[in-house]
């Protein structure tokens, strides 16, 4: 499933400092019953966002109109637990294109890269700088430049570089996915499979 190209993203930020946010929080299992990929954004963070009657919980950041944007700034160990790609579909469907954290769970990070949501790992110190800036001034913008591999706090120019492997970087920039690559080398794969 190809996705939009990712080059430079400049946006305000939604802060969620809670640590160890697992994919059951991002999208609870009872909402995984769809057989198509669209529409999961409505139930993103469902049980933190709404009470049992379906009323918005005022203290949750997605219900706070002062914060919005395409970048989610998350606490340490974001996306742990279940491999459900639905968690990333929900973030994407809601409008996030980039998640920033000092630590990501493995499968979640892979899933992000596979559907075009950029996971940016920053140092714990820089994460603190970002949280403070955004919480003090919700209009704070952050710029993520995939070519330069930098993330910058626009107001102060404070910046940090992040890692992404060359292959994934090119994919993100061009909106390619792994299947395109794999289908192109199918003959090599079938030859390999003969002995397996």
């Amino acid at each position: 499933m190809a996705y939009d190209k990712f080059n430079i993203l400049k946006s305000t930020v939604v802060p969620l400092p809670t640590e160890n946010v697992d994919t059951d929080q991002i999208i609870p299992a009872r909402f995984l019953k769809a057989t198509e990929r669209e529409g999961f954004g409505d139930n993103l963070f469902r049980d933190w966002r709404y009470d049992v009657e379906g009323n918005p919980k005022k203290d949750f950041v997605l219900n706070d109109p002062t914060f919005s944007g395409k970048i989610l700034l998350a606490g340490k160990n974001f996306g742990s637990g279940s491999s459900r790609e639905h968690a990333v579909w929900a973030l994407y469907d809601y409008g996030f294109r980039c998640v920033v954290s000092s630590f990501f769970a493995d499968i979640f990070k892979n899933n992000c890269l596979n559907i075009g949501v950029l996971p940016v790992t920053v140092s714990a110190e820089f994460a603190d700088v970002l949280f403070e800036a955004v919480e003090n001034d919700p209009s704070t913008e952050v710029e993520v430049d995939i070519e330069k591999q930098t993330i910058t706090l626009v107001s102060t120019g404070a910046s940090e570089s992040f890692d992404i492997n060359v292959y994934k970087k090119e994919n993100m920039k061009n909106g390619f996915d792994d299947i395109d690559y794999l289908l192109n080398i199918k003959d090599e794969i079938t030859e390999f499979a003969v002995n397996r």
């Binding site: 499933m1 459900r84 892979n110 559907i115 289908l183």
Partner: peptide, 14 residues
Amino acid sequence: GIGTSEVEMVFATQ
């Protein structure tokens, strides 16, 4: 464990 995009990759190319 893998995500659904990878499930698709395994179907298409193993």
